[in-house]
């Protein structure tokens, strides 16, 4: 292979590594995992002497040294949507890629396919959003009627937050509206006699919004020495919790004033 072809090949490899990293990061992987994977993918091919990857929750920076050249790539990440299945698939893919002699073009095709997979359709997600709410309200001491009410409320909460997310609205407004819908519907359900404890219904319904991913990843990033990522994810967790509290609080305030 002559020199120009090899240079091209190295660039394609870098593009592949960053694409894999982007899919993982925007579906909610920890940053150290993305860094590890990019470095492993790059080091698995050709005579690349030196690779360095720096990943934060909002961007990927990679540069590698090949022969006399230094090539770098910068990728900005905007939206984060949690999809653990894609993380798992890209993880498997990178292991496969490193251990075999897969062609880079074929690998890029595979990655693009992974990016397009939708593991569960929206209806399933809505239904299970209802199931979270229903079972958590039972877990916190709700009655059977509360179970039914929070099932419907939970479905509505997930529908609202999914639709707002598709419109590209910030996560603050998103969670705020989700929580507001949860409390509004719970109060209404109790008023028409479906459900006895509005508090249990509300608590169950906001469980699908709580920042579990942000908490987990903030800690795991911080523990692996990525303080920037840890801080920014910790901030995300705090703001999410606050937005939920504000959403619930606003409706309760209106309720206590007697306006609903």
């Amino acid at each position: 292979m002559n020199e120009i072809d090899e240079k091209k090949e190295v660039k394609r490899l870098l593009i592949l590594a960053v694409l894999a990293g982007r899919i993982m990061l925007k579906n909610g992987a920890e940053t150290y995992r993305v860094e590890d994977m990019i470095i492993r993918i790059c080091k698995s091919r050709k005579n690349i002497k030196y690779v360095e990857a720096f990943v934060t929750p909002t961007g990927i920076f990679v540069s590698l040294e090949h022969g006399e050249d230094v090539v770098s790539y910068l990728q900005r990440i905007n939206t984060i949507k949690i999809d653990l299945n894609k993380i798992n698939m890209v993880n498997d893919f990178s292991r496969q890629f490193v251990e075999s002699d897969m062609e880079i073009e074929e690998a890029i095709e595979k990655l693009k396919k992974i990016d397009d997979i939708d593991n569960y359709n929206n209806i399933t997600k809505f239904l299970f959003g209802g199931i979270i709410a229903a079972f958590f309200s039972l877990l916190f001491g709700g009655s059977f009627l509360d179970f039914l009410a929070s099932f419907f409320t939970g479905i509505m909460v997930v529908i609202v937050s999914t639709k707002l997310n598709e419109l590209g609205i910030t996560f603050f407004i998103n969670n705020f509206s989700g929580a507001a819908v949860a409390s509004l519907l719970s109060i209404l359900f109790v008023r028409i006699g479906l459900g006895a404890n509005p508090d249990k219904i509300i608590i169950g319904s906001i469980m699908s919004l709580v920042p579990g991913v942000a908490i987990t990843n903030a800690i795991r990033d911080t523990m692996s020495g990525d303080f920037v990522s840890g801080l920014s994810r910790g901030m995300e967790a705090i703001i999410t919790a606050l937005s939920i509290a504000f959403g619930v609080g606003m409706i309760l305030k209106i309720y206590f004033k007697g306006l609903i």
Binding site: I82, N85, Y120, I132, L139
Partner: peptide, 18 residues
């Protein structure tokens, strides 16, 4: 049972592998 189903609901929202 309650926490089992609650967690399953959450894991589907996070689109966990089947």
């Amino acid at each position: 049972v309650f926490s089992f189903f609650g967690t399953i609901g959450a894991s589907i929202l996070f689109s966990i592998p089947r």
